[in-house]
């Protein structure tokens, strides 16, 4: 029977248990590819540990992990072409389902589909929206992670919400 050990590895493993799902989800809706998101999540924690093992100081582990993940996502975007704007796909159509029909559609939606819908929103709204409403980060935390002002984040959230509603209606027309 082991006695209590206070090695930072235990604390880091604790941080992994706490944040791994959130980091994975963040990578998934930003990238849209599960396998890639898994690799990125793993790389995020490895890079975090590397930093700590070399003597780096981490004040806020959660923000630190998100920053690493964000940088990995940016690298991935650079390797790809930017996604086309979906604005031209979001034109209003003639038929508008009723509220009851929308209710039915939302009930059929599963978790993966909901996240996929989010991933269709153009950047940088997608990042702001996901961090605020899926990961429950405050404006202050998002601002710290992204380096943008809280006002900018607030505007992106507002515009992102409008786009998400359009995407939902468009997909269910």
């Amino acid at each position: 029977m082991k006695n209590k050990e206070n090695h930072p590895k235990d604390a880091f493993v604790g941080a992994f248990d706490l944040h791994s799902n959130a980091i994975f989800r963040y990578c998934l809706y930003r990238i849209g590819d599960r396998e890639k998101a898994l690799d990125m999540s793993q790389d995020t924690f490895m890079k975090a540990w590397k930093f700590i093992s070399l003597g780096g100081s981490v004040e806020n582990m959660k923000a630190f992990l998100y920053k690493i993940a964000t940088n990995l996502i940016i690298d991935e975007y650079r390797r790809r072409k930017s996604p086309e704007s979906l604005d031209n796909l979001l034109e209003e159509k003639g038929f508008e389902p009723s509220i009851d029909e929308y209710e039915h559609m939302i009930n059929r939606l599963d978790a993966e589909q909901a996240l996929a819908m989010l991933s269709q929103i153009p950047e940088p709204y997608k990042q702001a929206l996901g961090m605020r409403f899926v990961e429950d980060l405050s404006l202050k935390e998002i601002s710290e992670i992204t380096g943008e002002s809280e006002n900018t984040i607030a505007v992106r959230i507002h515009r992102g919400l409008a786009k998400l509603v359009k995407i939902f209606k468009h997909q269910n027309d």
Partner: peptide
């Protein structure tokens, strides 16, 4: 619309490893 949005976010949180 608020209801749709809240449901989307709620479900999106269900995605995990």
């Amino acid at each position: 619309e608020n209801k749709i949005l809240s449901q989307i976010f709620q479900k999106a949180r269900g995605v995990t490893l």
